[in-house]
Measured scan of single mutants.
Amino acid sequence: MDTYKLILNGKTLKGETTTEAVDAATAEKVFKHYANEHGVHGHWTYDPETKTFTSTE
């Protein structure tokens, strides 16, 4: 398992979190669920070199 990072740049919520996942697709599902639960619906990007997802509203 690898550690993946999420950076949230929402209108009402900003911050970072991490998750352990078997691959990027699994981490993306976890992070999108997390963002949706916190009302963040933004544009998603992923940097495979740093294993970092960013959601920007």
Rank of each mutant, 00 (worst) to 15 (best):
S55F: 15
N9E: 09
G10N: 05
E16G: 07
D2N: 14
T50Y: 05
H33P: 02
M1T: 12
D2E: 14
V30N: 06
T18W: 14
Y46K: 00
K11E: 11
H38F: 12
E37D: 10
F53A: 00
H38Q: 13
T26S: 13
D23G: 03
G10K: 03
V40L: 08
K5F: 10
T3I: 13
G10P: 02
N36C: 12
T3A: 05
F53T: 00
A25T: 10
L6M: 04
E37T: 12
E28N: 04
E20L: 15
T52L: 04
L13F: 15
E57R: 02
T56C: 07
T54E: 07
T3C: 13
T54A: 06
G39P: 00
E57Q: 06
T50S: 10
P48I: 08
T56P: 03
T26D: 10
K29I: 13
F31I: 00
T56I: 09
A21I: 01
D2H: 15
N9F: 11
S55L: 15
P48R: 06
L8H: 04
A25I: 11
T19N: 02
F53C: 02
Y4F: 10
E16L: 07
A24W: 13
K29C: 09
T50D: 04
W44V: 04
K14L: 07
K32D: 03
L8V: 08
N9A: 08
M1K: 13
K11I: 15
F53I: 01
A21R: 01
D23H: 03
E20D: 11
H41A: 09
K32E: 06
T12G: 09
D47L: 04
V30E: 09
H43T: 14
V40T: 04
K11V: 15
K11N: 13
E37F: 11
T52Y: 02
D2S: 14
K11R: 12
L6I: 03
M1P: 10
T56R: 05
D2A: 13
D47E: 08
T12Y: 15
E49W: 10
N36S: 13
P48N: 06
T12C: 15
S55I: 15
A27D: 00
F31A: 01
F53L: 00
Y34P: 01
F53V: 00
T54D: 03
H38T: 05
H43V: 15
Y46C: 02
Y34M: 05
P48K: 08
A21T: 04
K29V: 12
K32G: 03
V22I: 13
K5W: 08
T52R: 01
F31R: 00
V30Q: 09
G10C: 08
T50A: 06
E49T: 12
G39N: 10
D47H: 06
H41T: 10
T52W: 01
A25L: 10
T12R: 07
Y4S: 02
D47W: 04
E37K: 11
L8S: 02
G42I: 06
H38D: 02
T56S: 10
V40F: 15
M1C: 11
F31S: 00
Y46R: 00
H33E: 15
E20M: 14
A25R: 09
H43C: 14
G39F: 06
Y46V: 01
P48F: 07
T12Q: 10
M1F: 12
S55H: 10
T18Y: 14
V22Y: 13
M1E: 08
K51Y: 06
T19F: 11
G15M: 15
K29R: 12
A27Y: 00
V30F: 15
Y4T: 02
M1I: 10
D2Y: 14
T45P: 01
L6T: 02
A24R: 10
D23M: 02
E37I: 13
H38N: 11
A21G: 02
P48C: 08
P48Q: 09
T45F: 08
M1D: 05
P48L: 06
A25H: 10
K51L: 10
V22G: 09
V22H: 11
P48D: 09
V22R: 12
E57N: 04
A24P: 10
G42C: 04
G39R: 05
K32A: 06
A35W: 03
V22D: 07
T19A: 08
A35Q: 03
G10A: 05
T45K: 07
H43Q: 13
A27Q: 00
A21Y: 01
E49Y: 11
K14Y: 13
T56A: 06
T50F: 06
D23V: 01
D47C: 09
K5A: 04
Y46L: 02
E28M: 13
A25Y: 10
G15V: 15
K32M: 11
K11P: 14
A24T: 07
D2V: 12
A21W: 02
T56L: 07
E16C: 15
G42H: 04
T45L: 07
H38V: 14
M1A: 08
G10Y: 13
T52A: 03
A21H: 02
T18L: 08
T17F: 15
A24M: 11
N9G: 04
T56V: 09
E49Q: 11
G10V: 04
N9T: 08
T19D: 02
S55T: 15
D23K: 02
L13K: 09
T52N: 01
A21L: 01
T19K: 03
E49H: 11
T3R: 08
T50H: 06
P48A: 12
D23S: 07
E57C: 05
K51S: 03
G42K: 02
A27H: 01
E20N: 11
D47Y: 05
G39W: 07
L6W: 04
K14V: 11
A21P: 00
G39I: 04
H38C: 11
V40H: 10
D2M: 13
Y4V: 02
K14E: 07
H41S: 10
G42D: 04
A24L: 09
T17K: 08
H43I: 15
Y4L: 02
F53S: 00
T3D: 03
K14Q: 13
T45C: 10
E16H: 09
E57Y: 06
E20Y: 12
T54Y: 12
Y34H: 04
V22M: 13
H38R: 13
M1G: 09
H43S: 13
